[in-house]
Amino acid sequence: MKLLFFDLETTGTNPGRNGIHQISGSIVIDGKHIQDFDFHVQPNPKAVIEDAALQVAGVTREQSTASSSPAQQAADPAQPNDDLPF
């Protein structure tokens, strides 16, 4: 059985206004821990970034917008997702 545990850090609590700035988690296959991952991603440019949400995550506004977009990370062969087992 393949299991994916994940956590999202967002720029606020409203999914219609706020965006995702971090995606992390673990992959477990047949009861064996395979890999952890942690991607810092740029929120949607239209997302509202709330300072209180960034404080909870321990990141600055500049850090939250400095990462590449999720699409860029998925397309970039140098990103650490190359060795995911799926």
Score class of each variant (00 low, 15 high):
Val59Ser: 02
Asn14Arg: 07
Gly19His: 01
Leu54Phe: 01
His33Ser: 06
Ser64Met: 04
Gln55Arg: 10
Gln79Ile: 14
Ala57Gln: 07
Ala66Met: 10
Lys32Gly: 07
Ala74Ser: 07
Gly12Cys: 03
Pro85Lys: 14
Gln22Ala: 06
Leu4Gln: 09
Ala66Asp: 07
Ile29Thr: 12
Asp83Cys: 15
Asp30Tyr: 01
Val59Leu: 02
Gln55Gly: 05
Phe39Ile: 08
Glu50Tyr: 04
Ile20Ala: 03
Gln72Cys: 11
Phe6Leu: 13
Ile20Cys: 03
Ala52Lys: 11
Asp51Glu: 08
Asp51Gly: 06
Ile20Thr: 08
Gln55Pro: 03
Ala71Asp: 07
Asp76Arg: 09
Leu3Glu: 12
Gln72Ser: 14
Gln42Cys: 13
Phe6Tyr: 12
Gln73Lys: 11
Arg61Tyr: 03
Asp7Trp: 05
Ser24Trp: 04
Ile34Asn: 03
Gln73His: 08
Val41Leu: 02
Asn14Pro: 00
Lys46Cys: 08
Pro45Ala: 06
Arg17Asp: 05
His40Ala: 12
His21Tyr: 01
Gln42Arg: 15
Ala75Ser: 06
Ser64Val: 04
Ile20Ser: 04
Asn81Lys: 14
Gln72His: 09
Pro43Phe: 00
Thr65Lys: 15
Thr65Val: 15
Asp83Arg: 15
Gln79Leu: 11
Ile49Pro: 00
Pro85Gln: 15
His40Thr: 14
Ala78Glu: 14
Lys32Met: 10
Leu8Met: 06
Val56Thr: 08
His21Pro: 03
Ala78Ser: 15
Asp7Gln: 09
Pro77Phe: 12
Lys46Tyr: 09
His21Val: 10
Arg17Pro: 00
Ser64Ile: 00
His21Asp: 01
Pro77Asn: 13
Ile49Tyr: 00
Ile49Trp: 00
Ile20His: 01
Arg17Val: 10
Gly31Met: 04
Leu84Arg: 15
Ala74Tyr: 08
Pro15Met: 02
Gln79Asn: 13
Pro70His: 00
Asn81Arg: 15
Phe86Cys: 10
Gln42Leu: 11
Ala74Val: 07
